[in-house]
């Protein structure tokens, strides 16, 4: 058994909150040099374990393609069909994967802080692929990457984040990252989804209950899914939500003419947005998915010390 080292191994990516600005910038820069269509064997023979305790389509497949594009060997471990089902603890699973020969672990977990616990006790890099309602750092990086494809710089942009903020790890990571680079963020949604305390997350966050106010003049409109699986007894009338907060073409007109629409997926058409918006030329939702690969290539290369 490994002695607790307490500080995470170099190359770990646990959250955006504690990631330095210069590391964010260098990851984005590195991502620009990554192209899955031109594989680079930077991680040849490295073993990367994808440890997924929650369902995932985008994040899992793009981490896997990213790892393979760099020449790494990947193994997927899911909670069903593994010893996790038999009651093995998170740390014991971590020790086991380390003993099997993992060089890095990418972990998605329903409990906030699970990657931090693992990183505290393992001497290999741990990459957070989404932990409960806490953070989703690779998503925030690919969002910044996507915005920069469409806009000259982040500074001075207005971003509206609309929907279920309280349950959203994507929103938390985005707020930490974007506010650091001079973006003004307005959080928008009903009290149950956007409590007043949300404004304490990062400096300069603003809250409004009125969609029109959030969208007017925005450069980026970021929509979030209503996370039914995390509602834990909260009663939200979906019809009310749709009436007040669904992104429609008419509402999108209030944003800047060159505004882009973003969504971390999965999207629920007819709930947080209409098909018209999802499929409009302003939609950058598929760009986000594609950009996930080079960004995650950069994250993995950095994790294993091959950030070239």
């Amino acid at each position: 058994m490994l002695a607790p080292s307490n500080s995470p191994a170099r190359g770990s990516l646990l959250d955006i909150e504690h990631l330095e600005d210069k590391e964010i910038l260098s990851l984005l820069q590195l991502a620009r040099r990554m192209n899955p269509l031109k594989p680079r064997p930077l991680l040849r023979n490295k073993r990367i374990i994808l440890l997924f305790y929650e369902p995932s389509t985008r994040t899992r497949s793009s981490f896997e393609i990213a790892a393979k594009s760099l020449g790494a060997i990947t193994t997927l471990v899911q909670s069903s069909g593994s010893s996790i089902e038999k009651g093995e603890s998170l740390l014991d699973t971590g020790y086991t994967l380390r003993a099997v020969g993992a060089d890095a672990i990418v972990i998605r977990h329903p409990s906030a802080g699970a990657p931090h616990l693992m990183a505290k006790h393992l001497d290999i890099p741990v990459i957070n692929a989404g932990d409960g309602m806490h953070e989703h750092p690779s998503q925030a990086l690919l969002d910044a990457f996507t915005i920069l494809e469409h806009k000259k710089s982040l500074k001075g942009l207005q971003v509206a984040i609309i929907g279920d903020i309280v349950h959203s790890r994507v929103a938390r990571s985005a707020c930490h990252l974007l506010t650091r680079f001079g973006i003004k963020i307005t959080l928008c949604g009903p009290q149950e989804f956007v409590p007043e305390v949300a404004a304490t997350l990062a400096p300069g966050l603003r809250i409004t209950r009125h969609l029109e106010e959030a969208v007017r003049g925005a450069d980026v409109v970021m929509l979030l899914r209503v996370q039914k699986e995390r509602l834990a007894g909260q009663k939200i009338a979906l019809q009310d939500y749709i009436a007040h907060y669904q992104m429609t073409a008419a509402r999108l007109h209030l944003a800047k003419r060159d505004a882009i629409v973003m969504h971390p997926g999965p999207i629920i058409r007819g709930l947080e947005l209409t098909s018209e918006v999802a499929d409009s030329p302003q939609s950058a939702i598929m760009d986000e998915v594609s950009n996930g690969v080079p960004v995650r290539m950069a994250i993995l290369a950095r994790a294993l010390g091959r950030a070239k």
Partner: peptide, 12 residues
């Protein structure tokens, strides 16, 4: 406790 820290950590 419910407050800025629980919100930041994504804990209820």
């Amino acid at each position: 406790h419910g407050g800025p820290t629980s919100f930041r950590l994504g804990l209820r």
